[in-house]
Amino acid sequence: MKDLNRRLFLTASAAAPVALAAARPASAALGDISLKAALEGRKSSRRFATTPVPEDALLRLLWAANGGNRPESGGLTSPSWRSANDTVIYVATADGLFRHANDKNTLEKISDTDIRAASSDSAFVARAPALLIFVSDGEALRKAAEGADEQALTVGAHVNAAIAAQNVYLACVAEGLGTCLIGGAANREAIATELKLPEGSIVTYIQPVGTAR
């Protein structure tokens, strides 16, 4: 774990019975690459093949986004404002809707409904094999940032999610996948309804992922 590339794509080893797939040690699909190469290859893609994203690759992306990298302290791969650790990532696919459990690096199915098309009016979002949905846990954020006003909380939620999304961008380069980050074109109210989010939660961004065309 001394090497940045090895840390970036290492996953946890335990799986819960309700998880979609067990997290397991894995290296990047295209082989380890340098941070410099990942930054040079980072770009936004909006055209995707229909080929599903392999489960192990998807778990590596999610670990890079917001996975545990220091089990002894509960530390994560992405920092957050006031250590709120409020970012929760959901994944929408043709098979349904899943929640990323970042402590185990597993995907837990919460619905059979495919909400990709409802998540944005942009047609390419519905065609992407996987859609990451970033949500700020309002309760966790407010507890960590006690006394902060609503504007500060909203900014903090979006910054925390954006950092995690940038990690996904870099991991996608190593996995040979494409992605882009979407804010304004996200149907936040529809997403919140589909996810049955509690009051105070904030849908920050959506991020389609797939093989770029």
Rank of each mutant, 00 (worst) to 15 (best):
Q207K: 10
S80C: 10
G31R: 07
K36P: 08
F9H: 10
S111C: 05
L30R: 15
S119K: 03
P208R: 04
L8T: 05
L61W: 03
A94H: 12
R7D: 01
R47M: 14
E72F: 12
A152E: 13
G183N: 12
R42T: 07
R142M: 07
L61F: 08
S111G: 07
S120C: 07
A26R: 04
H158M: 11
I202V: 15
V135A: 05
E175K: 06
I33P: 03
E72C: 11
F134M: 04
L76A: 04
A144M: 12
E146P: 01
T77I: 03
V91L: 06
E175C: 09
K109F: 05
W63I: 00
Y90M: 07
R82G: 08
A65G: 01
D114C: 06
A37M: 12
R46P: 10
L30C: 13
L4M: 10
A57L: 09
R70W: 07
F124Y: 15
A19K: 00
E40K: 14
N5P: 04
G210N: 08
R6H: 14
S44I: 08
A130Q: 08
Q151E: 15
V209S: 04
A161Q: 01
S80L: 05
L59C: 00
I115G: 01
A38P: 04
A117K: 12
D103F: 05
S44A: 14
L58M: 14
R7Y: 00
R99D: 07
K2F: 13
G31V: 12
T113H: 10
N5A: 14
R7A: 01
A37E: 15
